[in-house]
């Protein structure tokens, strides 16, 4: 079963579950309990600048202790034949698209976790392992994670991956915005290595201004849209493109925060103390029955 259909399955079951509970799934305003700092950081990806060298893929693996191999091997361009997705072996990947226009230069797009401002994964995580940090990163605590994979189902970008191939202690994997590097004042590994600075790391508010300025200065080069500025309530990673984002496999998402959907389902199921009330009612019922039987038995004996 492919990842997508699995997700679809999970989503459908959740909706059915909510339906069974007989409760509405209307959009509830997301209420993240996590921090949304004014000076949270972000990254502006300018896909018109990216040359598809895939150095970021290598640097990411190095920074996250994943088998990375030789940097030179990343010059191999046959990988672009298929569209790849970030997974457990590579937390970021670069895909290549034809530019379409008269230009012979392809368009390269880096894919990784978008680090939403209102992350669905944070909201969906039933053990509170996920959190939106002050610096904009969406990270998770491996020790708390129980491997329920709700984050995978909730993510509008289908980013979190699960180590299905590991029998013992499989983990959820995704880009962590190099949380360990940034807290030491270093740049995220991918931003640091990018030879053309297609990735710009900085305060999100400033990046939006820079992006707008670039579009204004070069209106023929760019599509007048910053992907991630408003999508699902805004994301820390934002993209500029010279080509329609849909053609570059960006999902078409509204501006409502994604947790609105997942939270409404979850809150629906768990609203009005239905599960605990029914559980206690059931337990109480069993208790009452067993007690009643005991009493009957004792009456018979006596």
């Amino acid at each position: 079963m492919s990842g997508k259909s699995r997700r679809d399955f999970l989503k459908t079951s959740a909706v059915i579950g909510a339906g069974v509970a007989g409760l509405s799934t209307s959009t509830v305003k997301a209420a993240p309990k996590n921090i949304l700092s004014e000076d949270r950081m972000g990254v502006l990806v300018d896909s018109t600048v990216c040359v598809g060298c895939r150095n970021c893929e290598w640097a990411c693996k190095e920074a996250h202790d994943l088998p990375a191999g030789d940097l030179q091997s990343y010059e191999e361009r046959s990988v672009f034949k298929d569209k790849r997705r970030p997974g457990t072996k590579a937390l970021t990947v670069v895909n290549e698209y034809s530019s379409g226009k008269n230009s012979n230069l392809p368009v390269d797009v880096k894919v990784q976790c978008m680090h939403c401002d209102h992350p669905a994964c944070v909201s969906a995580c039933i053990v509170g392992a996920f959190s939106k940090e002050e610096n904009g990163s969406v990270i998770w605590d491996t020790d708390k994670c129980i491997g329920c994979r709700y984050c995978m189902a909730a993510c509008p970008f289908q980013v979190p991956a699960f180590e299905y191939d590991k029998a013992i202690n499989p983990l959820i994997m995704k880009c962590d915005f190099c949380f360990n590097r940034t807290k030491e004042g270093k740049l995220p590994a991918c931003v640091n290595i990018c030879p053309v600075e297609a990735l710009t790391y900085g305060p999100r508010t400033e990046l939006v201004k820079i992006a707008r300025e670039r579009i204004k200065r070069n209106p023929e080069k760019f599509v007048d849209h910053i992907f991630g500025e408003h999508e699902v309530g805004g994301t820390a990673w934002m993209y500029l493109s010279g080509k329609d984002f849909v053609e570059l496999d960006f999902p078409q998402l509204g501006t409502n925060p994604a947790p609105g959907v997942s939270e409404s389902i979850q809150h629906g199921i768990f609203a009005y103390f239905v599960p605990p009330v029914s559980l206690y009612a059931l337990l109480g019922g069993i208790m009452w029955i067993t007690k009643h039987r005991k009493e009957l038995d004792e009456e018979e004996k006596s």
Partner: peptide
């Protein structure tokens, strides 16, 4: 961060 650094500018 409004303009790229020297390495990026060259590249």
């Amino acid at each position: 961060i409004s303009k790229p650094d020297l390495e990026a500018a060259y590249h």
